[in-house]
């Protein structure tokens, strides 16, 4: 027992020595205790943005939407940005948010609604840093937290209208991950759009209980097809499995979060694409005027943060296209109200 303790302490000492060796070369900013923004005299104005996101940058869904937005934003603004994907574990994400803030990133974005708690905790330690998270409206009354949300039901509604008109079998299938957040909002909007257009249509919704299980998403799509569906939609990154099955069966698909027509050019009728640049633009502009947070932003059809991208490879009948445009206009005008369950 005594020996054991001795070796343990030896081990710990060794580890500390190693850590100490690592220290001298990294000159200044270490971590949380010094929240001041690091000064970089030559490039003082270059804005540094960090993104922490739960999935991978190329997930064809939620994470890709912010990644694509950053790539676009970079072309028009003088920024430097960093990205940490696969931060599905809230603890890892919290460490990442804190570290980016400590490294002197001026805008730290946690792109996932599970990151709110962490942000609420971290933000007060870095009063000079702006934080942002979504999708939500909650800024916790903190002066340096922004929140953002997507009115995903709006695009869902538009596509629901189109789907209802395109369906010949009067059966439409939906493949969702778990019944929550952005996914549920989109699905509810879609269903509302279908039923507003044709209440006799049978819209069937499955939630497969996972964001990652492509095989089960594909099987859910097969089930919808076998049950007679000829138009389908779905949300989150595992839908690529379902889109593939639609392609095989010649059914139509409506996408959301990212542009999905590049994945299945003859199947995806339209995608609701999130343009988070709109939000980024707002936040950066506010920050330039010394407002570090405390506001929430929404992307929707009206402000161009959500765009319905019609796929040119799929021939959409003129009356469906007209109805879609009319619906978009109606939602923007406020003449159409979407009744969510």
């Amino acid at each position: 027992m005594k020996n054991l303790v001795k070796y343990l302490s030896l081990l710990l000492i060794f580890v500390f020595v190693l850590a100490a060796c690592g220290k001298p070369t990294a000159d200044e900013p270490s971590v949380a205790e010094e929240p001041e923004v690091v000064k970089e005299p030559e490039v003082a104005e270059k804005l540094r943005i960090a993104i922490v996101s739960p999935s991978e940058y190329n997930d064809f869904a939620f994470t890709q939407s912010i990644y694509d937005a950053m790539t676009l934003f970079e072309t028009t603004h003088d920024i430097e940005w960093a990205f940490s994907g696969m931060m599905f574990n809230v603890d890892d994400a919290a460490a990442a948010l804190r570290d980016y803030a400590a490294q002197g990133y001026q805008l730290v974005i946690g792109h996932g609604s599970q990151y709110g708690s962490s942000m609420q905790e971290i933000a007060p330690d870095f009063p000079e840093t702006s934080f942002a998270w979504g999708t939500t409206v909650e800024t916790f009354g903190q002066p340096n937290i922004y929140a953002y949300e997507a009115a995903s039901h709006e695009g869902g509604y538009v596509m629901g209208v189109m789907a209802a008109m395109l369906s010949k079998t009067k059966v439409i299938g939906v493949v969702g991950p778990i019944e929550t957040g952005d996914a549920k909002l989109y699905v509810d909007g879609f269903v509302a759009g279908v039923l507003a257009t044709d209440p006799t249509i049978n819209v069937r919704v499955t939630y497969i209980g996972s964001f990652g299980d492509i095989a089960l998403a594909a099987e859910a799509a097969e089930t919808h097809l076998a049950a007679g569906a000829d138009v389908m939609t779905g949300t989150a990154q595992m839908v690529v499995g379902a889109i593939g099955k639609c392609e095989e069966a010649g059914a139509y698909w409506f996408g959301t979060q990212a542009e999905q027509s590049t994945f299945a050019p003859n199947t995806v009728v339209a995608s609701q694409v999130y343009h988070w640049e709109v939000v980024l633009e707002d936040m950066v502009a506010r920050r330039a005027k010394n407002q570090l947070g405390g506001e929430y932003f929404l992307i929707n059809l009206a402000n161009g943060g959500q765009v319905i991208a019609f796929n040119e490879n799929v021939t959409i009948p003129a009356e469906v296209m007209e109805a879609a445009q009319a619906t978009i206009q109606g939602i923007i005008d406020g003449t159409i109200t979407i009744n969510l369950p």
Binding site: V15, F16, L18, A19, C21, G22, K23, T25, A26, S30, V31, A32, E33, D91, A95, R98, D99
Partner: peptide, 21 residues
């Protein structure tokens, strides 16, 4: 790897995070 060590043991906060984890 220097970043790794730094991130795990480089400061009070880093070491605490390691212990939390």
């Amino acid at each position: 790897y220097q970043a790794l060590l730094q991130g795990a043991f480089g400061s009070k906060n880093a070491f605490a995070e390691t212990l939390v984890r």
